[in-house]
Simulated scan of single mutants.
Amino acid sequence: MIVVMQPGATQEQIQAVIDRVAEFGFQTKLAPGAERMVIGVVGSPLPDTLKEALERLPGVEEVIRVSKRYKLVSREFYPLDTVIQVRDVTIGGNEVVVIAGPCSVENERQILETARAVKAAGASMLRGGAFKPRTSPYEFRGLGEQGLKLLAKAREETGLPIVTEVLSAQHVDLVAEYADLLQIGARNCQNYLLLEAVGRAKKPVLLKRGMAVQIEEWLLAAEYIVAQGNEQVLLCERGIRTFETFTRNTLDLNAVPAVKHLSHLPIIVDPSHGTGRWFMVPAMMLAAVAAGADGLIVEVHPNPDHALSDGAQSLTPENFAAVMPKLAAVARAVGRSLRGVATAEPSLSPAD
C-alpha cells in the first residue's frame, strides 16, 4: 500500500500518517518526490480499516494498494531508483560500474595478478569464487575460506571491493566476514532459506536470475531478501536456458528495460555466463550498457586456457582493457558515464 500526500503536505501531516500506520503494527518507507511525498506501508496483510483510516488524515491525497505480488521491490511501491553503496562504489546512479575477475580463486598469484590488471583497466570491483557450485562433484569447487582470505588480500592491495558467492545459509556469516557484496548464484535464485539468511545479514546482495526463472519469479526472490529488512539488493541478468546450444545460455537483454519498468532495484548484466564464449562477451558488454544496465560483471583470467573453471568464457586482461574505452563511449552515448574510465572517442567496434 502507498500513501500519496498532497503537494505542500506539512511534516506534521506526514508524521501523522507514519504514526497511524505504526498504531496498526506496520512500518513505513518514505519516497520524497519533486512535488509530493509518497509513503510506502510495509506489512501483510494490510486491512481495509488501515486504508480507510489513512484516507481520513489531513494532507493525504490518495491511498493505493500495490497490485503486484512482489510489493517492496515494486516500482509501484517505491517510484525512485534505489542506489546501492558498496564501500566507495555507487551502483544504480548515473555511473555504469564494471565488476571483473576470475570465475574461481585458484591461488594467490592468479587473483592478485588479475586484480591489478582489472583495476588498471578501470574495473570498480573484483569478483572471484571461493565456494563454487559445479554441475559435476568432481570439478574444482573452490578454495573455501582460503579463497576468501586471498580475495581480502587482493582488496587490501588494490582497494577494490569484492563480490563472491555464498552457497548455503550456514556459510552466510563466514562469507559476510570477508565479502563486500554477497552473490546469490543462478542455481540458488529460489533457495528461499538462503535468501532470507542474506536478508538478515544486512550486507548488499547481488541476486542472479535463475536459468529457468521468469522475471516475476526473480523479483519475488528479491522480495524474500528485502522482506527481511535488507533493501540493498542488486539484480543480475546472466542468461536463461533456451533451445539454443551454440551459446551457453541466451542473454536476455529484454530483462534490463523490463526490470527498470517493474522495479526500483538496479540491474547489472553478466555477459560471460550469458554467452559462454569469450569472443562474444565484448559485444554483449556494449549492448547491455546501451540497453540501460547499471553495470556489468565479467570474467577475466590471466591464462584462460589453464583456468580451473569457465576458461572458455573468460577475457584475458588485454581483451578486457581493450573493450573498456569502447564501453565508456557507449555509456556517454546514452547519457551516462563509466566509472573509472575516461571518456575518449574510440571506435565502437567490439572486435579486437
Rank of each mutant, 00 (worst) to 15 (best):
F140C: 07
C236P: 05
S136Y: 10
A179K: 01
A152H: 00
M284I: 08
L262A: 12
G159H: 11
A222R: 11
R69D: 13
A283D: 03
N107V: 12
E345H: 14
H306W: 14
M324W: 13
Q27P: 06
A333E: 00
A342T: 12
E76R: 03
E35N: 13
L327K: 12
F243N: 13
S272V: 08
A344D: 07
P137F: 13
M125K: 03
A293P: 04
V83R: 09
V96P: 00
D88C: 07
E55Q: 15
T82G: 07
A288T: 06
L112K: 08
G40S: 08
K71F: 15
R65D: 14
D294G: 08
P45F: 08
L206K: 02
V205R: 00
N191E: 04
G93C: 03
A31D: 09
Y70A: 07
Q228F: 11
A293C: 09
P58W: 11
V281Y: 01
V259W: 01
H306L: 13
T158Y: 14
V323W: 04
R155D: 02
V289E: 10
V4Q: 13
T316G: 05
P302Y: 04
G199P: 04
E157Q: 14
G25C: 03
H171A: 15
P325I: 06
T135S: 15
K51R: 15
E165W: 11
L112D: 00
L46Q: 01
T245C: 12
K202F: 11
R69H: 11
G129D: 02
A221D: 09
T242I: 12
M284Y: 12
S263W: 05
V259T: 02
R134E: 10
I162M: 12
D88R: 07
K153R: 05
P302E: 04
M1F: 04
W218F: 14
N230K: 01
L57P: 03
A290I: 07
G129Q: 01
R200G: 11
I215P: 07
L219C: 05
W218V: 07
E61R: 15
P317N: 09
V205P: 00
Q170S: 15
M37L: 14
N254T: 13
G93H: 04
R75L: 06
H306Y: 13
K326I: 10
V198N: 03
V42P: 06
A16Y: 11
E52T: 15
L265K: 00
L181N: 07
S104L: 12
A227F: 05
V175N: 00
R155Y: 03
R332L: 02
L207C: 01
V289W: 07
V341C: 06
V89T: 10
R248E: 08
M285Q: 02
D180H: 06
G144M: 12
L46K: 04
L327S: 08
G340H: 05
E113V: 05
E139L: 15
E237P: 01
K132C: 08
I64V: 15
G128P: 00
L315V: 02
R127Q: 04
G159C: 08
L262Q: 13
L112N: 01
V42Y: 05
M37F: 10
P317G: 08
G92S: 12
L251R: 06
K119S: 07
I297Q: 03
G147A: 07
F320V: 05
E231Y: 05
K202T: 04
E76V: 01
K51Q: 15
A329W: 02
D173W: 10
S168C: 10
G295V: 03
L286Q: 03
K260Q: 09
I240G: 04
T28C: 10
T250W: 13
G144N: 09
G122Y: 02
